[in-house]
């Protein structure tokens, strides 16, 4: 049983949605690619103009539609293209993370990071960490939609 479970876990490839801001994190991901840094392919990126644009309901919706984890990434504090969008995002995601934890959703499933346009290596590290974390947690089915549509 235990070996079977282990192989199942090893085979489990998590589905992670990454909301990356256009100005820093997306460019960081781009840099990771152009620098040919190897990292797991589990994070599916959705580019948003700013991490402040990430409505915390996006996270809920991602889980409903089959995501096992969500990554939100923006510019470092003080670097936001829109001066303070990332500060607003920080408050919102912090509150949502706490709320999800209280409901019984593992807090590690939602991850927030600051990745600048120059941090291609950091982006690769983040993706590696997130993928590992969520692999350990297994699939997120608590409130996934049961219907295929």
């Amino acid at each position: 049983m235990s070996t079977q479970k282990k192989t199942e876990l090893e085979e489990f490839e998590p589905n992670i949605i990454g909301f990356l801001c256009n100005w820093c994190s997306y460019a960081g991901a781009d840099l990771a690619g152009t620098s040919r840094i190897q990292y797991p392919p589990n994070v599916k990126i959705i580019k948003v103009m700013c991490s402040g644009r990430v409505n915390p309901m996006y996270i809920i919706n991602a889980f409903q539609q089959g995501a096992d984890g969500v990554l939100v990434s923006g510019c470092h504090p003080g670097d936001c293209h829109y001066t303070h969008g990332n500060y607003l995002a920080r408050r919102r995601i912090a509150t949502m993370k706490k709320l999800l934890e209280f409901l019984g959703i593992e807090p590690d499933r939602v991850r927030m990071t600051w990745v600048s346009a120059a941090e291609g290596r950091k982006y690769a590290d983040v993706v590696r960490e997130v993928t590992e974390d969520i692999k350990k947690l297994g699939p997120m089915t608590k409130f996934r939609r049961e219907k295929e549509w």
């Binding site: 915390p56 309901m57 809920i60 919706n61 409903q64 509150t95 949502m96 709320l99 999800l100 409901l103 608590k142 409130f143 996934r144 939609r145 049961e146 219907k147």
Partner: peptide, 25 residues
């Protein structure tokens, strides 16, 4: 459509999380 009209665990959870979150602060 943020929350579908179907009444099931998934949509109900989404609604209740949304309600609680929108009342934060």
């Amino acid at each position: 459509q943020w929350v579908r009209r179907s009444v099931n665990l998934s949509e109900n959870t989404a609604w209740n999380v949304m309600r609680a979150f929108h009342l934060a602060g």
